[in-house]
Computed example of a mutant assay.
Amino acid sequence: MNLVMVTGGVRSGKSAYAERLVSERAAALPTQAKVLYVATGVRYDGEMNHRIDAHRERRPDSWDTIETPHEISVSDYEGYDIVLVDTLSAWVGNKLMSVPEERCRDTKMTELIGRQVSAYLGQIRASQIREAVIVTDEVGWGGVAMSPLGRWFQDVIGDANQQLASQANEVVAIVSGLPWRLKG
């Protein structure tokens, strides 16, 4: 099982890179590869609708898609050769946004999400899929967020990204549309 992490800043080109990588890897398989695209974005305004639609239009028609913004499950991946998760950071953000404001930075919720990320990565590693490509936002290159929720997100996704990078066979950072191989 090959686990690939694709990270970068917002609008860095990480999703497009991951899609090209999956297309290349699928084409290299000896038989027709079954590809699953796991979308975690939420349509909460016109701009997000546009972003989600643009991602959808770029994907090959032969790929299956599931939209799962709140709960991602490896059981959905059975029968697929390659799975592309876009993005781990949106999934974590969706979880944090569901927490009432008065519980922002709740230690138990922070620990729960960390355990969920760990369990998810363990399930992927133990799965029968050939390859998983997980896209996530790199938040460590920007400034400290101005709001408590923003800082909480940076902390939680920073920890999740470190877990992912430690388990990944390959890590690629996208900077201004250019891939920078960090691992593998």
Rank of each mutant, 00 (worst) to 15 (best):
G46C: 08
V156E: 04
A126L: 11
R25D: 12
V85R: 11
I134Y: 02
G142C: 03
G140M: 03
A54V: 07
Y44H: 13
T7A: 00
Y80S: 03
Y44L: 12
K183D: 08
Q32H: 11
G79C: 02
H70W: 13
K183T: 09
V156F: 02
R25N: 13
R105V: 12
D61T: 13
E170Y: 11
H70G: 05
W180A: 15
G142F: 08
M146E: 12
A168Q: 01
S98E: 08
G158V: 05
T107D: 13
S176M: 10
G41E: 03
G158Q: 07
G41M: 10
W91F: 01
L36V: 02
A27Y: 10
G122H: 01
E102T: 14
Q128C: 11
K108M: 14
E67Q: 12
S89G: 11
I52L: 08
Q116S: 13
T110A: 12
Q32N: 14
R43T: 10
E170G: 00
K95W: 05
G114S: 04
A28F: 06
R51F: 02
N2R: 14
P30I: 05
G158D: 11
I52F: 02
E78Q: 14
N2W: 09
L36I: 05
G122P: 01
A160P: 04
I134N: 03
G46W: 09
L84A: 02
Q163H: 11
Q154V: 08
R103T: 10
R125D: 08
P60Q: 03
E67P: 12
E111Y: 10
D81L: 01
I157F: 02
V38F: 06
E101L: 15
M109C: 15
G177D: 02
R103G: 12
W180T: 15
G142P: 01
I66W: 07
Y44M: 13
S23K: 15
R59P: 11
V99H: 02
N169V: 14
S73F: 04
R51Y: 04
V139L: 09
I134T: 03
G79L: 04
I72V: 12
A132M: 08
D61F: 07
T68F: 08
E71N: 15
P148S: 15
M109L: 14
E24C: 06
I124G: 03
S62R: 14
V74T: 07
S75L: 11
A39K: 01
Q167T: 07
G114Y: 03
W141N: 15
E101W: 13
A28W: 11
V133G: 00
G93A: 07
Y80R: 07
Q32K: 15
G93F: 03
Y37V: 06
K108T: 12
M146A: 15
G158W: 06
G114Q: 09
W63Y: 03
G13L: 06
T110S: 10
L84F: 02
R58C: 14
D64Y: 06
S147K: 09
K108H: 13
L149V: 07
D106Y: 05
V144R: 00
N94T: 02
S89I: 04
G158R: 06
R43G: 09
S62W: 01
A132V: 09
G114R: 08
V144I: 15
